[in-house]
Design a protein around this nucleic acid. Structure first.
Lengths: 204, 204
DNA sequence: CAATATTCTTGTCAAATGGCAAGAAATGAA
DNA sequence: TTCATTTCTTGCCATTTGACAAGAATATTG
């Protein structure tokens, strides 16, 4: 490809971030560039943590490449996966970030990751100074909230097998990046059950 | 009570709304009054709907008195309760309201209700003109999101009986206002199971 | 109040899921 | 490549939950 020199060799290429900001249709090209200029690069090695429980999350992260997951511990001390993050998504824990309280969740890189972040103070400054970013921020919040509502409905209504099938179709990347045990807790079942469901499923 | 003439006989008393706006510590007394002045009274009779599926929700409602629930229909056509609303809460469906799309959910009064509402346009106007209301709005969003995350974790981790017990302790009003069938679907179980859990529970 | 409708409980049985443990398979490190 | 570790699968059995249906209890309506 003739433009590969430009697009892949530049280590501070914010193209994807800018494209993402614009994809909501709430931010113009110029403003997207202006917003993006406030973001700084961040790399997280596989297995390392972007957030550990007990900490107050101070970074609003856009994931450029890589794959992450969030998890909490239940009362028995077992890990429960609460979310997965593919590239081109914002990665943050709402409550800790906005309420400035210690997080109950961890956010961990499942592969080597790179992204762009701004701090809490910067987010607020930009919310105040750039109405379009405010709208964008609200949109991210609404989107995350809505997605969780849908997931909750599925949890109440669907069988474990249906939840598995849906996840497989809507988020196949998850199965390339996370262990089955991790996925099982996200689906609200044990790894044993997931294994059996997959066995049943492959029979069809 | 000597002030009862003022507080209970005035049918457009916005005290609770103003108090609620201020309770987040994000809005000053003066601003709270200013914001409240944009809200209009709304009454909903028992069993009537504030929102019906298919509609685009256009009202941001503060529930002054009464009790409501939100529910959706699953693939088999059964009602699944997605939320309960007691007085002194904001009542709205995030996705329909902010994304201007038809709602999948219904919001219904379980008792006679009265509250205060503003329209989508007014919300946006106020978000734009009053930074404190913007903060308030974000806080409501974050709060709802966080509550749902906690509920999801409980759904994954806790047994049906534990979820029942927790709800009984944290939201006893629900049991005074909703049928067991309604509560059961909120807990993600059938009414039969809830009945048995209650039987077990009362034995202790 | 009586009649009707709705909600709640309970029994029986089936299906889904979990707990535990052992072995197979895959992965990672030396 | 080899060894160690982690992940995944599978068997066995217990527990939880659901489906369905009948009857009891409660609420609603005329």
């Amino acid at each position: 490809m003739e433009h590969s020199l430009h697009s892949s060799s530049n280590h501070s290429n914010q193209e994807k971030l800018i494209y993402f900001l614009r994809s909501t249709n709430l931010v113009s090209a110029t403003t997207a560039r202006e917003i993006a200029s406030n973001f700084r690069a961040k790399h997280i090695n596989k297995h390392d943590f972007h957030l550990q429980e007990g900490q107050i999350l101070n970074e609003y992260l856009f994931l450029d490449t890589g794959f992450m997951r969030a998890f909490a511990h239940n009362t028995e001390g077992n890990e429960v996966t609460t979310n997965f993050y593919a590239q081109n998504q914002v990665v943050f824990e709402v409550s800790s970030f906005f309420n400035r309280i210690p997080s109950r969740e961890n956010i961990q890189a499942l592969t080597n990751c790179s992204g762009w972040y701004i701090t809490y103070e910067q987010v607020n400054k930009l919310f105040h100074s750039i109405p379009e970013f405010r709208e964008f921020g609200r949109s991210m919040l609404v989107q995350g909230f809505s997605a969780l509502k849908i997931r909750m409905l599925s949890m109440i209504t669907d069988t474990a097998e249906e939840r598995y099938t849906k996840l497989l179709h809507t988020n196949p990347e998850i199965f390339q990046n996370a262990s089955l045990k991790t996925i099982a807790s996200y689906l609200g079942i044990t790894d044993t059950s997931l294994s059996r469901i997959r066995k049943e499923f492959s029979r069809k």
